[in-house]
């Protein structure tokens, strides 16, 4: 039995498990998505509906809303498994814990990050964005939100089972989201003047994603072991 194929199999089983669980509790999925939609819709009501202003603030608002939505969903990443003891089984699995963590984060992103990417055109309509900017926004969200899930997983693991864990989680995780916010929103802003200018932004976002992909599962695994002692 080769180690690599069992590892892949475990990875696949965990991803499928979390997707199945989510499909049997669909409301959880929709709450994150609607949270995003509501936050984005509130700003024009508060700031005013002048098109020029809306176009200017759209990138920042879409990204801040994405940050908050992804963070809200994080609380549930390990909490359920922690309560019913399945997390303990994962800690005792004969595969590297970071692989299992990565599987859980991938499933989490498919359920909470990807829907944000797909709903982005709605933001485009509300904020009068051009088709080009909208494309860049979707692309930036596609590259940026996995980093949010990966980094956020560390915070979720550290605050596992704590009272008031949700608020604490935001305190720990939001400052670490700043680079993604700056370049994610920057890419969309740059696209207004020139689509070609957005390339370095997207490259940086990709770089962050790779960096997080390498380090975050390891840190999350360490945090889970600390939290479940």
């Amino acid at each position: 039995m080769s180690g690599k194929s069992t590892m892949l199999r475990t990875f696949r089983v965990i991803v499928m498990r979390d997707l199945t669980l989510a499909m049997r509790r669909r409301t959880d999925l929709l709450t994150t998505l609607f949270f995003f939609i509501i936050v984005v819709s509130l700003f024009p009501l508060g700031v005013g509906t002048e098109k020029a202003i809306l176009r200017q603030i759209a990138p920042g608002i879409a990204w801040v809303a994405a940050l908050l939505a992804s963070m809200l969903a994080l609380e549930r990443l390990f909490a359920g498994d922690f309560q019913d003891g399945t997390l303990e089984q994962m800690l005792l699995a004969p595969q590297p814990l970071s692989v299992l963590v990565l599987a859980k984060v991938v499933a989490h992103w498919l359920l909470t990050g990807l829907p944000l990417v797909l709903i982005a055109p709605l933001v485009g309509l509300q904020y009068d964005l051009s088709a080009g900017s909208l494309g860049i926004m979707m692309l930036a969200l596609l590259i940026g939100t996995p980093t949010l899930s990966l980094v956020g997983a560390i915070g979720a693991a550290l605050t596992l089972g704590l009272r008031g864990g949700g608020v604490l989680l935001s305190l720990l995780v939001l400052p670490l989201y700043i680079p993604v916010l700056i370049y994610g929103a920057g890419a969309v802003s740059a696209s207004v003047t020139s689509i070609a200018d957005t390339q370095p932004y997207l490259m940086l976002l990709t770089g962050f994603m790779i960096f997080a992909l390498v380090l975050a599962p390891w840190a999350t695994a360490a945090a889970l072991r600390i939290s479940s002692e």
């Binding site: 669980l21 309560q83 399945t86 303990e88 089984q89």
Partner: peptide
């Protein structure tokens, strides 16, 4: 194999 206080099973599965 460790069998703890929790059953380690998912209610929805």
């Amino acid at each position: 194999v460790y069998l703890g206080h929790h059953n380690g099973i998912k209610d929805d599965l």
